[in-house]
Design a binder for these strands. Structure first.
Lengths: 150, 150
DNA sequence: CCCGGACCTGAACCAATGTTCAGGTCCGGG
DNA sequence: CCCGGACCTGAACATTGGTTCAGGTCCGGG
C-alpha cells in the first residue's frame, strides 16, 4: 500500500463523459471556456481528476437553474486552486445560487398569481401592468439572447 | 358618429414599439415568425390593430416565464382568427402556462431545498443524485441551446 | 410641393451553447 | 509490433432571439 502507487484513477474524456452524462464535445467546450481543467498525458490526451465529476455536476445543475456559463465560471473561480475542494467549499459556492433561486421562485409565483388575473381582466394592456412592464426589476442588459429576463 | 369614420386608431410599428416597449426590429421579427400580424397601407407600411398590444404583452410575459417563441406561437394559434379575442379567449390561452409555471416552481423549490444538502453532503457525485441526473424528468430534446433544461 | 423623419426589405452580424466533421495522433490488447 | 477504437485540433455549422446596416420608399406638416 504505497502512497504513490495508489493514485485515484484519472478519467479520460470518454469516461468523464459517460459518468457525467455530458457529451465529450461539451466537456471540451467547458474546458475551452475555463469551467473545468485537465492535465495532459505525454501523448496530449486529457486526464481529469475525480473532482471534475463534481464540477461538471455543479455546472449542469447550475444551468438547470438558468445560470449562464459565464456566471458559473465566476463562482467556480471561488473554489480553491491547487487543493481539492472540501464540502465546505462546495457549500459556500452553491450558496451563491440560493438567493438567485429564491428570487426566481418569487418572481414565478408572482407571475403565476397574476397571470390569469392580469390577462383575464384586461389589464395586460401594457402601460399599467407590472407583468408587462417589468423594466424596474429587470433592466436592460444589452443584446443577445436573454434567458430568464426577456 | 358614423360607424365607419370611427375606427379604432391603427398603430404604426413605431407606435406599437413605444407603447409596448419592444424594439421595432423585434416586432418585425415576431411578425416574420408569425407571432403577430399586421395589414399594410397602400404604401406598404404596417398597421396594427389595438389587440396587437395585448399579443405583444402576452409574448413578453411568456418569454419571462421562459417559454420559447415557437411554443408561444402555438398557443397564440389557439386564439380565434378574424375575431377580436375576448377576455375568455385570453384566459384560456394563458391557462396554458399555468401548469408549466407550477412545474417550474416546484422544480426550483426542489432544487433550492436539495442544493446545499446535495452539494454539501457529497452526493453530487453524479450517478446517484437526482439533481445531477434529471433525465427522467427532462429527456433529450435534440441539439441547440436549451434554456431551462440543460 | 418638398423635406426630414419614419418606414420598408434583405442580408449580415451578434452572443450563448454546443455539435459535427475532416484529417491526423495515441494507446492498449492480442 | 499492429490495428482499431479513443482521442486530438480547428473550423464550420446549428439554433434562438434578435440588432444593425445599406439602400431605397412613404407620409405628413409647413
Amino acid at each position: 500500500m504505497t502512497r504513490v502507487s495508489w493514485q485515484a484513477k484519472q478519467l479520460t474524456v470518454g469516461e468523464l463523459s459517460e459518468r457525467s452524462g455530458v457529451p465529450a464535445s461539451a466537456l471540451r467546450f467547458y474546458e475551452r471556456q475555463g469551467l473545468i481543467h485537465s492535465h495532459r498525458t505525454a501523448g496530449n490526451q486529457r486526464r481529469y481528476t475525480r473532482d471534475s465529476l463534481r464540477r461538471v455536476a455543479f455546472i449542469r445543475v447550475s444551468q438547470r437553474v438558468g445560470i449562464p456559463l459565464a456566471m458559473i465560471r465566476e463562482v467556480l473561480g471561488l473554489l480553491p486552486e491547487e487543493r481539492t475542494p472540501t464540502r465546505a467549499d462546495w457549500a459556500r459556492v452553491s450558496q451563491c445560487w440560493r438567493d438567485d433561486l429564491n428570487t426566481r421562485i418569487k418572481q414565478l409565483e408572482q407571475l403565476r398569481d397574476r397571470l390569469t388575473d392580469c390577462i383575464g381582466c384586461g389589464c395586460l394592456s401594457i402601460d399599467i401592468c407590472t407583468l408587462a412592464n417589468p423594466e424596474d426589476a429587470l433592466g436592460e442588459q444589452g443584446p443577445g439572447p436573454r434567458r430568464l429576463k426577456a
